[in-house]
Design a protein around this nucleic acid. Structure first.
Lengths: 241, 241
DNA sequence: TAAATAGTGTCTGTAAGACAGTATACT
DNA sequence: AGTATACTGTCTTACAGACACTATTTA
């Protein structure tokens, strides 16, 4: 297969290792969590037994593209096939992997909280949902601390002016639920009236019937109109309630 | 060197090709330009003779990191050592390079217009400053059309709420010059009064004495306070003058 | 003194935060 | 009826766009 062109004379140099890592977020038990996996406890392996972001080498046979590779890893770890997925950046240098010059393509994904029957809410022995604050303090493998920090920074930043938190909820959801998700990610309260105006004016939500089930007045249920892209607002949030 | 750990059994798979490409912008003759290079006219080579973005394979021996590699390519093509440099994204799949599965790390750089004595203003036979509109219509090598489109989109987008155009000018510059640069990149006029308030309030500029030399009233000269990061504004521009 | 360009002041519209008020569900 | 929650209306403030005005330079 391939090598349709004659092998150029300049092509016989050492190639870097290429990995894809995915920072997977969800909101669970009222706080923002990230999925960490435990590296195999094998002395052959770099960082044995340490927590790390899910990821691994690109498989030239199986993966048609970087995004395919990211989706594959996400599906393997969470069973979620259609998340919000965004490229975060890439990190590559001679020292980040003891096995050699390596470059990592990092993605970040937003998924709704796992239900009790899938894979267990709290994770398993080699895979766990960890509070972002706590994950930031852990001594993760490779340069995953800076990748995680970049992901959290990007998420917190974009929440100020996009509809990203909508992808952290199961549909349909109500505006109070969405507001709560914003508050969890931002780490501060936001004004109810301003919040509702903002979300409804942005026009990315679609009414989908009343949602009942708890005490108090019933709320309108919504879903996002176009799950392939986030809405952006013209202005950032200010202080709050 | 390296290979300090025993070669793991799972490490003998095919590695993708890894390249770094740089989208280099400047403002020349009143319009936004991008640097294109001509690929060698060699049948061994993919896309012989076609225009492409400057870039090439990561050299594991010479490049300590991806950014180093990007800076090296920029310096080789333009002689500029301290540009504004930002990671744009990465593109990788089985088909973008006929020589095999390849991934490209793309950066974009903003530099001031080349002076007449360096390398020639319009470029040379194998390297040319091209208007972005025209470059967008060219049939560039590889998937460079989509990388270029992403870079232009990112630049135009960020100009709405950052100080990026300041990096397209030689220091010191005046506020009218800066406004003109914004207008060139945005492709539309902006209001003078609002513009000045915005720039001065953002506090990223530093007065550096009056600038004379042409007809009309002399203007204050400025330089950016911290060349390592762009300022961001709370709001986006609206329509204009 | 006129032309050209730099810089300022004032008005207005828009949109968000504050917060109190109204509506509708369940017990 | 009372409580809990969803939703709306009104006031105020901040800030950007519009645009006319003043200031300072060169010809």
């Amino acid at each position: 297969m391939k090598k349709s062109l004659p092998r150029s004379p300049g092509m016989d140099f050492e190639r870097p290792l290429v990995t894809v890592d995915v920072v997977i977020f969800c909101v669970l038990e009222g706080s923002l969590k990230v999925l960490l996996v435990r590296r195999p406890n094998d002395v052959q392996d770099p960082f044995p037994g340490r927590w790390a972001l899910p990821g691994g080498f690109v498989n030239v046979e199986k993966d048609r593209s970087l995004i395919d590779c990211a989706l594959r890893k996400l599906d393997e770890k969470t069973g979620v096939a259609t998340p919000y997925l965004e490229q975060l950046g890439s990190w590559g240098d001679a020292d980040r992997d003891p096995r050699g010059w390596s470059s990592a393509h990092a993605y970040f994904a937003l998924i709704h909280a796992p239900t009790d029957n899938e894979e267990g809410r709290r994770g398993s022995a080699d895979s766990q949902w960890v509070d972002v604050e706590e994950a930031g303090r852990k001594r993760l493998a490779f340069d995953h601390p800076r990748i995680l920090a970049a992901a959290i920074g990007r998420l917190r930043g974009k929440v100020e002016y996009t509809s990203l938190p909508a992808f952290l909820l199961t549909e349909p959801f109500t505006l109070p639920q969405l507001q709560h998700t914003y508050e969890v990610v931002l780490g501060r309260p936001v004004d109810k009236s301003a919040f509702r105006k903002r979300m409804l004016d942005a026009g990315f939500l679609e009414e989908v019937g009343m949602a009942q089930g708890h005490s108090g007045r019933a709320a309108m249920g919504y879903r996002v109109r176009d799950r392939d892209q986030a809405a952006t607002f013209p202005r950032t949030f200010k202080a709050g309630e």
